[in-house]
Simulated assay, not measured.
Amino acid sequence: MMKEVDYRGWAKYLVLLMRVAGMESRRSRIQGEKLCEFACGTANISIILSKLGYDVTGVDSSGDMLKVAKEKLARRKSDKLHLVHHDMVTYSQKESFDRAVCVYDSVNYIPTSAALGCFFGNVYEDLKPGGVFVFDASLESNSLNEPSLFVQRGKHKGVFYHRKSLYDPETKIHTTYVRVKKNGRVIEEVHREFVYNLALIRKLFSAAGFEERFAAGDFTMLDANDYSERVHFVLVKPDHD
């Protein structure tokens, strides 16, 4: 189901957004920079960012996802990518990173505004002064405007899948039911995403101490608004010194 995702293009878009914050103007600025990817999954984005020169730490709460990621790393033998099994909301390494990213609407899996605020606070503490945090969030328009994505069936590399999504505009919860069959084995999962509006997201990361440099709508370099489907925020931890 993830075969249509352009991970390389997404990683390059993240670097472009970090340039908006005044960073990454030259490739030499990337080399050796410490970057944390929260909710790294199977490390597709992390691997690409490490190839660009970042020293990457990938954090994810799923042991199964990290197992796949470790298999990929074993084939690459890279010393610029390290994996950590931990809940991203509570992960804390004080002033350890120059950059942080969190993509594929991973913040939408955080179930409460209090927990989302906690996450922003910990990321703020994780970054060095002047550090940059880029994350994306799926807004309500993404759930309302894409009915064709609500039911998907297909086959990819011998894996049959069926996905059905339902959105409740009252609770602001987008639920996706996934059924995967491979070699006679059936796996069923339920994913719940919690849709937050722009105003609340901004209130929470501002309370954590972040300054917003840019909010880009729908994989463009245009300003996001309440009608955007996906927003990438570019935040900076102020360097008061």
Rank of each mutant, 00 (worst) to 15 (best):
A39C: 06
A39Y: 02
A39N: 06
A39T: 12
A39G: 02
C40M: 15
G41I: 13
G41T: 04
A43L: 08
A43G: 02
N44A: 10
N44T: 00
N44G: 02
I45S: 12
S46D: 09
S46T: 08
I47W: 01
I47Q: 05
I47Y: 02
I48Q: 08
L49E: 11
L49Y: 07
S50C: 11
K51R: 15
K51A: 09
L52Y: 11
L52R: 04
G53L: 10
G53T: 12
Y54M: 14
Y54L: 13
Y54N: 13
Y54V: 08
T57P: 02
T57A: 09
G58K: 10
G58D: 14
V59M: 06
V59S: 01
S62K: 15
S62F: 03
S62P: 04
G63I: 10
G63H: 08
G63V: 15
G63N: 14
D64T: 14
D64K: 13
M65L: 12
M65C: 10
M65D: 05
L66S: 03
K67C: 03
K67P: 00
V68M: 04
A69W: 03
A69V: 13
K72L: 05
K72G: 04
L73V: 11
A74V: 06
R75D: 07
R76L: 14
R76I: 13
R76G: 01
K77V: 08
S78N: 10
S78L: 12
S78I: 07
S78G: 08
D79G: 14
K80C: 05
L81E: 02
L81S: 06
L81C: 05
L81W: 07
H82D: 07
L83D: 11
L83C: 08
L83V: 03
V84Q: 11
H85S: 06
H86R: 11
H86A: 15
D87L: 11
D87W: 12
V89N: 09
T90P: 00
T90C: 05
T90N: 12
Y91E: 01
Y91S: 05
Q93F: 02
K94I: 06
K94P: 04
E95W: 02
E95V: 00
E95A: 14
S96E: 14
S96N: 01
F97I: 06
D98V: 02
R99D: 06
R99V: 05
A100G: 07
V101R: 00
V101E: 00
V101M: 00
C102W: 08
C102E: 06
V103C: 07
Y104A: 00
D105T: 01
N108P: 14
N108F: 15
I110W: 06
P111W: 15
P111Q: 14
T112K: 12
T112H: 13
S113Y: 00
S113A: 15
S113P: 10
L116C: 14
L116T: 13
G117I: 01
G117W: 01
C118H: 11
C118E: 12
C118L: 15
F119Y: 15
F119H: 11
F120G: 15
G121M: 09
Y124P: 08
E125S: 07
D126V: 06
D126W: 07
P129A: 14
